[in-house]
Design a protein around this nucleic acid. Structure first.
Lengths: 185, 185
DNA sequence: TGTAATCCGTCAACAAGGCTGACATAAATC
DNA sequence: GATTTATGTCAGCCTTGTTGACGGATTACA
């Protein structure tokens, strides 16, 4: 697979023993090769997240707002606590963002039905429109990359990403990512 | 974990064993499915970058320092301008980080040989040690994910990431990350 | 040779978006 | 009735990004 300066540099063997249980083909990955993967991930994610920035800036919002809009759209009716758990930020930090979104009429916050202490969050039509505009360049980027790389590559891409998740939250993430239940938009 | 809900999702629509080129196999991806990919990428990257944080915090440093250490290690002798281009931040922002690293003896800044206006940056032994400690949990995460997902998945992972890069900087990035995991075009 | 451009460093001010701590209120629970 | 829970909010701090301005050293050029 790889050689050249890379292989010359890390004559050190890959530390991943584990035997060839999963596949007959072994992966010999030097630390340097793993660093290259980390770097690739860094650049890809940087480019990916850079897409919506101009739109956000034009409205005086930031990435934190985009994240909130994204997850509220994906889980309409989510509570503040639920959003806190997903985003892993403090309630003070989230509240600052949420307040702006509500004030600008992008997010609707309604009293919980069973528990009136809670707030159920959902996007207003304007919020939906903005979220769509923000995420469209990202979807276009993924669509294009997927088309160029092909179905097997896409399957591998998703498999590796899933395995990279923290074990603790993996089930939660995968159930969310994998739930076709929210196709009802 | 390799399949189940994920495979059912449509990433794996690659049934044909014939010689059909990968671009001929169609990908039917709804916007909702693309959003799921974006979400998965978000969670994976979040977990990935969370690894070194405790070590950094213990030394009073942040992620910006880790990024600088990483790229200086990968390109020893890089100039300030080169690092600026990679990180895409302002020189004032980078300088603040770089100054700390030099002050703490983690980075060595020497006068350029051909052009004495430039500074050539490299890690000191202490800087190498810190960078290694910071990146080790990330490499371990990748090693494990790669081993579990298998070689084909790894190849697909890298292919998709490469296709996600901005066209403008793709060549530069790929030459830096030593791309030979696949042959695009 | 003199002038302009370049590379780097720095000061100042500011903003986004994290954080902790403290406190308040309404509603649910025990 | 007392306590816990869900949420909101004030105040202040930190990191890391931004603009704008300026200066010194060095190189490139007319």
């Amino acid at each position: 697979m790889q050689d050249g300066k890379t292989a010359a540099r890390g004559a050190a063997r890959a530390g991943s023993g584990a035997g060839a249980s999963r596949s007959e083909k072994l992966l010999f990955l030097t630390d340097e090769q793993l660093r290259q993967s980390a770097e690739l991930l860094f650049f890809a994610y940087r480019d990916f997240t850079s897409d919506p920035d101009e739109i956000l800036a034009a409205r005086g919002l930031g990435r934190a707002h985009h994240r909130a809009l994204h997850f509220i759209r994906r889980r309409p009716g989510i509570t503040v606590a639920g959003l806190l758990e997903i985003l892993r930020v403090t309630k003070q930090s989230l509240n600052r963002v949420l307040r702006q979104l509500v004030d600008e009429g992008l997010v609707e916050s309604t009293e919980g039905l069973q528990d009136r202490r809670q707030r159920n969050l959902r996007l207003s039509p304007a919020g939906e429109a903005l979220e769509r505009a923000l995420s469209e360049p990202q979807r276009a980027r993924l669509r294009r990359a997927y088309a160029l790389a092909g179905p097997e590559a896409v399957a591998g891409f998703r498999q590796v990403l899933e395995q990279m998740l923290d074990g603790a939250g993996r089930d939660g993430v995968l159930s969310m990512v994998g739930s076709d239940a929210d196709e009802r938009s």
